[in-house]
């Protein structure tokens, strides 16, 4: 169940995409409010995702695959709800005097703690995973390194 090297590379590449997304979205937010910037980004993101869905269906034709995959639970369609609220909450903390750097650092820590708890209890239908001492070493390294990058000046 633990993925192969390609999954690892993809996951890191995903993080690179995330950094680029944030870079361009903050450029947009300098010309509009964070709320409007996110609204526009979600709208365009929906169009791009639609193109990906249509393009993928054209390239890979696999008829009769219906019912092969597990059915999606109703709540799994609502990932966009917490996704949208993230923008609002980030705007609240940045405007509230917690600088952008502090906001990012704490949000990263929150993500990692969520990941550990989610793995342990198998939340949101993900497989349960044993937490070992090494996990804390990994989390500690990534968070320490991230803190140095965030607070280490540009």
């Amino acid at each position: 169940m633990i993925g192969r090297s390609t999954d690892w590379l993809l996951a890191v590449a995903g993080g690179a995409l995330l950094a680029l997304m944030i870079n361009y979205n903050s450029l947009l937010a300098r010309h509009a409010s964070p709320l409007h910037a996110s609204w526009v980004a979600h709208g365009l993101g929906a169009l791009v995702a639609l193109l990906l869905v249509v393009g993928y269906a054209r390239v890979v034709r696999r008829p009769g695959k219906e019912g092969e995959r597990a059915k999606a639970p109703w709540w799994s369609y609502f990932g966009g709800v917490p996704g949208a609220f993230t923008v609002v909450l980030a705007a609240v903390t940045v405007n509230g005097g917690l600088a952008l750097s502090g906001t990012i650092a704490l949000t990263l820590a929150g993500q990692v703690v969520f990941g550990i708890v989610s793995d342990y209890f198998g939340l949101f239908g993900t497989p349960r995973r044993r937490i070992v001492a090494g996990d804390f070493l990994v989390a500690g390294s990534v968070l320490t390194g991230s803190a140095l990058i965030i607070f280490g000046g540009a």
Partner: peptide, 21 residues
């Protein structure tokens, strides 16, 4: 990658790629 790697790995690797980029 999320269901394939688990929540913690997915979060840590995304953070790594994000920070380096």
């Amino acid at each position: 990658v999320f269901p394939r790697l688990g929540a913690m790995n997915a979060a840590l690797l995304a953070i790594s790629g994000q920070m380096i980029t």
